[in-house]
Design a protein around this nucleic acid. Structure first.
Lengths: 210, 210
DNA sequence: CTCCTATCGCAACTCGTGTTGCGTTAAGAC
DNA sequence: GTCTTAACGCAACACGAGTTGCGATAGGAG
């Protein structure tokens, strides 16, 4: 068709069997690599194409912009399984989740991707939607530590599981992206415990809370 | 000297009296206007110069890039007085602070600037420092509601006042920049109350907390 | 007022991103 | 195997952001 793939929102080609799928895989991998190497603004469609061993017009025609490249890369990695921690206690699980956030963002190689995703989401609605879907998926996976705690009787049944995860991560992301202050293991513990105290106080109820 | 102003970190010119100061003021005002109109990536040095009624080489020589423009604009508005709320209770004050965050980010005209600042801070160290200084200043101003509460005996004296402000704002910023979920007055109240509960539980102590 | 020079305006230039037209390759159907 | 055409490679181009050299303007000192 005359309509390029990046304008109908999906990347289903008419020939998904061989070359198209191969090209997509190698381009998305190159996208991650270039993101780590140059960051969001330093990244160029041409550099991604070169690294992938593909001509730049191919990438321009199938994806169009770096925002769409990042969004597609994020979509493709959205549903990879993410093992939720299981330390035996809800507090331990929440601290483990918060600690992983700290670990990611204190490693420049791993923090480059989420930072670029946040930037891209502020520029294009396509990337914004991909980011939203990604975090919704991850939060749903992480929320099992809360539902398990409810089943164990550690927490009220009407607690909003995903909201508790959000409140656990929020103070860390706030320091990273807003105040620019450093984060460490103590900050992770503090964030997890604060979220837990709020949940135990009934402030994170799921229903039309009072 | 041969060193352009944006490389020595300050914008003190040798002739601060007349034209230089006038040019700076009109350029920074144009920076804000273009930020609202085009966002961070749509913004260009040339458009800022045109709007300011100056030639683009003037802006290029004094600031160099849009990151520095944004950083300088932020610096110049950092110390404008920001009236902290005074509702009579700490809970009311925190809810008022959180509600203002919601108000700003539900108005596209007002949310454009902080969104651009976050983006710019992810690209240049100069903008990152300006953002850090700006939020440090605002948080210090907002923290007076906490110190007042401590004086009234509402809260333990060892509470980290700024940390309580951070925990109040964090869940809102998390929804705005990370999960992309909507925010409203209920979310503001929830964030403020959760932070307050954590503070009352002694989790936000200033000292080498236990 | 006169002089010095920091700062600005102007025009031409460089360079890299993104585009377009066309020929080539290979996936999928038969 | 042959045929069709979606998808790719290639080369030349268009466009705009950022740069540079030089002359003009206007603070600030004496």
């Amino acid at each position: 068709m005359a309509v390029p793939p990046h304008e109908n929102g999906s990347f289903v080609t008419n020939r998904p069997g061989g070359r198209s799928a191969r090209v997509r895989a190698v381009v998305l991998e190159a996208t991650y690599a270039e993101l780590v190497r140059c960051g969001y603004l330093g990244m160029t469609v041409e550099n991604v194409a070169d690294r992938a061993g593909v001509h730049k017009t191919t990438v321009y025609r199938r994806w169009g912009t770096v925002d769409v490249l990042i969004a597609d890369a994020l979509d493709s990695s959205r549903d990879v399984e993410w093992p939720a921690p299981d330390t035996g206690s809800l507090e331990g699980d929440l601290i483990a989740i918060a600690t992983e956030v700290v670990d990611v963002f204190t490693d420049p190689a791993r923090s480059a991707v989420p930072e670029a995703v946040v930037t891209a989401a502020l520029q294009s609605s396509r990337a914004r939607q991909a980011k939203k879907d990604f975090y919704a998926s991850r939060h749903a996976q992480a929320a099992v530590v809360v539902t398990r705690a409810i089943q164990r009787g550690e927490l009220a049944a009407d607690t909003d599981a995903v909201e508790l995860i959000r409140f656990t991560c929020a103070p860390l992301y706030y320091r990273i992206f807003i105040t620019g202050e450093p984060i460490d293991h103590a900050a992770a513990e503090r964030a997890a415990r604060a979220a837990l105290v709020a949940a135990r106080a009934g402030l994170l109820a799921a229903a039309p809370n009072a």
